[in-house]
Design a protein around this nucleic acid. Structure first.
Length: 518
DNA sequence: ATAGGGTTAG
């Protein structure tokens, strides 16, 4: 007996250290588990299982991995308990083996001899696996149906939260909300899930952003001990950016700074940079960027800052930040290169933009996507290289979309030459025959080059097809006051109500006075 | 006793 207890401790220690080295060590320890009988003990065995899917131990490319991971459980000396199955499921799911986790479930959930399986602990990791890859979403719905059938009701907060995430990936915001509303006393992860769900722009970003502000206030007023953390703040700051409300954005920033427990990590940093850029305060965005901890400045943060610079037309700023990024050894991604190119495009940096495109595949190992080709067409077109732009459109390996044709045509208009644009007109009208912008662009082009008959013809066609162009406004006046909220939202069917709500919320945010130091 | 949910643009 003394002997067995020694093994117990020795092996658990081993498990803490050795298996991180190689699959061979891990298998040796598994063998020892079997020979010493330790595999009969639930706790040590669960430690073995939860380590069994570590990516650096067994890569997903290793064809034997699934067999091995399964054999640990299914060939163990005893039939597996619900606890052990759940351990392996979460281990598989959290290391990206989504299909394996799900097939383990489908293999065992129909087996009536396993007591208490499946149970509520089974579902969160499975639902999470379904939420992360779009082709598994239908399976997630099937799991939801199964949960209802099994009547684990009321569903516990873990299950509800993971269901909420699942439905948010399907843009079913109403489903998310009704799930959230059924949690009697939501904890922080539940609050964060619903906040992020609204913050992740769906089809109705204006309303959703207003809802984030509303929910954040509910969270602050809620009797539950949920204290907002970085994740909550990412949602809040994102919503302020979406609405371009600087006053609320700075309120959120002040909240972060005064709460000692909150740190500006890369998530919060990127959201602040984005928010300040969208509010037109590039200097404040830069301040946040500069104050970010060295270790937190990743590709995403650089991209956020570069996006701010690019949209404000600072092409040279984008380029120098890109150089800084390379100096720091931060790997650019496809978005980075797109931002560099779009910065060049808006600042007329023809050569720099073209060079960036040419270096993409070779130097950075990133294949140009449709957007990169679009940017290249834009760069060439703005520089008056209509023939070259046309060549890119003709020869590109990806099928060009309407945006690319419009981009070339816009350049044709600026340079008053339709020579390389005629084929684009045909393509564009085939692709988007109902888009008002196309007709306006076309008739303007014809007018600019003096082809008045064609201009009239286009306008007539637009009228005949009953295509209407909604006017663009930038300042919104409601009941005699101008609102600072971002453009475009006033066309929202509930604009008036939402603005009124935002006003109320905004006032309440500021009425709470100085944010308590905690 | 040991198993489960929350954060990155256009």
């Amino acid at each position: 007996m003394q002997h067995a207890i020694d093994w117990h401790q020795v092996l658990l220690r081993l498990l803490d250290r050795r298996p991180t080295k190689s699959p061979f060590c891990f298998k040796q320890i598994h063998a020892l588990f079997l020979t010493t009988g330790l595999a009969l003990h639930s706790y040590p065995f669960s430690r073995l299982l939860s380590l069994s899917s570590l990516p650096h131990l067994f890569s997903s490319l290793d064809g034997n991995h699934s067999c091995y991971s399964y054999s640990l459980l299914l060939c163990s000396p005893r039939p597996p308990s619900a606890f052990l199955i759940n351990t392996l499921t979460s281990s598989l799911a959290s290391s990206g083996h989504h299909h394996l986790a799900l097939s383990l479930y489908s293999l065992l959930s129909i087996n009536p001899t396993i007591r208490n399986y499946p149970n509520p602990h089974t579902y969160p990791s499975l639902l999470k696996a379904c939420s992360t890859s779009s082709h598994l979403l239908p399976l997630g719905l099937a799991l939801h149906a199964r949960l209802i059938k099994l009547l684990f009701i009321p569903l516990d907060p873990f299950v509800v939260t993971s269901l909420l995430i699942l439905h948010s990936r399907r843009d079913r915001i109403d489903a998310c909300r009704s799930l959230f509303d059924q949690i009697p006393c939501p904890d922080l992860p539940a609050w964060n899930a619903v906040l992020s769900c609204y913050a992740r722009r769906s089809d109705d970003s204006f309303f959703a952003a207003a809802e984030v502000l509303f929910l954040f206030q509910e969270l602050q007023l809620s009797p539950s001990p949920a204290i907002p953390n970085e994740i909550s703040l990412v949602a809040l700051v994102g919503a302020c950016g979406e609405l371009a409300t600087l006053s609320l954005g700075t309120w959120a920033h002040a909240y972060i700074q005064r709460r000692k427990s909150l740190v500006v990590n890369r998530f919060v940093g990127a959201s602040l940079i984005d928010m300040y850029s969208k509010c037109g305060c590039l200097n404040l965005a830069f301040q946040v960027f500069d104050n970010l901890l060295h270790t937190e400045k990743d590709t995403f943060c650089y991209n956020a800052m570069m996006r701010g610079l690019a949209t404000h037309g600072h092409g040279h700023g984008v380029l120098s930040l890109f150089e800084g990024m390379r100096r720091e050894g931060i790997q650019p991604d496809d978005v980075t290169l797109l931002l560099v190119m779009s910065g060049c495009s808006h600042s007329g940096l023809l050569e720099e933009g073209r060079r960036c495109f040419e270096r993409m595949a070779g130097e950075f190992g990133i294949l140009p996507k449709l957007e990169h080709y679009g940017c290249l067409v834009d760069i060439l077109g703005r520089a008056g290289r209509l023939e070259e732009a046309h060549e890119v459109l003709r020869k590109m390996p990806v099928k060009p979309n309407a945006v690319l044709f419009r981009s070339l045509l816009a350049a044709c208009r600026v340079y008053r030459s339709l020579h390389f644009g005629e084929t684009s007109i045909v393509k564009l009208m085939q692709l988007k025959p109902l888009y008002a912008g196309n007709y306006v662009l076309l008739s303007n082009i014809y007018a600019d080059v003096g082809r008045w008959d064609d201009a009239v013809r286009v306008r007539k066609a637009m009228k005949e097809r009953d295509i209407d162009k909604s006017p663009g406004l930038s300042l919104v006046e409601i009941d005699g006051t101008f609102h600072e909220f971002s453009t475009g939202h006033h066309t929202h069917p509930q604009a008036k109500e939402i603005y009124a709500m935002l006003d109320r919320i905004s006032r309440r945010f500021h009425e709470c006075g100085p944010i308590p130091l905690k």
